[in-house]
Amino acid sequence: MKIVVCVKAVPDAAGRRIDPSTKRIDRSVELAISDFDTYAVEEALKLQESTGEGEVVVVSMGPERAMDPLRKALAMGADRAVLVTDSALEGADLLGTAKALAGALEKEDADLVLFGQQSADGGGACLWSAVAERLRRPVISQVSELTVENGALTGKRQTEFGYDTIRAPLPAVVAVSDAINTPRYPSLKGIMGAKKKPQEALSAGDVGGAEGAATTVLALNPPPARGEARKIEDDGSAAEQILEFLAEKRLV
């Protein structure tokens, strides 16, 4: 079974900020694999270990120096890394990213494509659904438990209403939540061996070309002030005052 994990290299937490000149996240700081994606890498490795065979490939899209954080996935145990890197893809939005990743994934022809549930810096974008649409494959997200057997997968999907159990035949796309496992620390041998594993760079041309963005970032503003903050001292009626406040805001 070939499992491809899509990971994103994001600015390491300490350095995250928006560059006022480009209005996008400042990517000149240290990059690291998004924490959320390490759960996906771990799940891929666990599946590989349980079946005793297969290949785990990590695929990412980013600047050249994103190859460094990809090595962490190799150090954890992935077999190969592929980085789609091209200046034409800088600042790509959901559509552009989905197209480029899908292009790389088509070359890999994986049985299972895994994503982490959320991008640590972009937040909220369902890249997995967009990629699954391009690949014309079934997709299940928010998976907190995954089993693969006889060419099909069963996933426990967490929604606001509880857990659904969903089944889909392979090939499929799955986004795993951070409840699914505890990612392993790379062993020292793993770290030292990572450099020797195959690392491939693909250009925009290799994956079907770049696309103009369909969304734009127009301006950065300071957030609206929190609004008038009230501070009271309890004179015996604090509970009532709190209730009134909550009622005003329709929170109760």
Binding site: D93, L94, L95, G124, A214
Partner: peptide, 22 residues
């Protein structure tokens, strides 16, 4: 919602439409 976000992303690709979230 979990469902809405999944739908919107797939729909964006299907229609080649821009998607802004959050």
């Amino acid at each position: 919602s979990v469902l809405a976000a999944d739908i919107a992303a797939g729909l964006a690709v299907r229609l080649e439409a821009g998607l802004n979230w959050d």
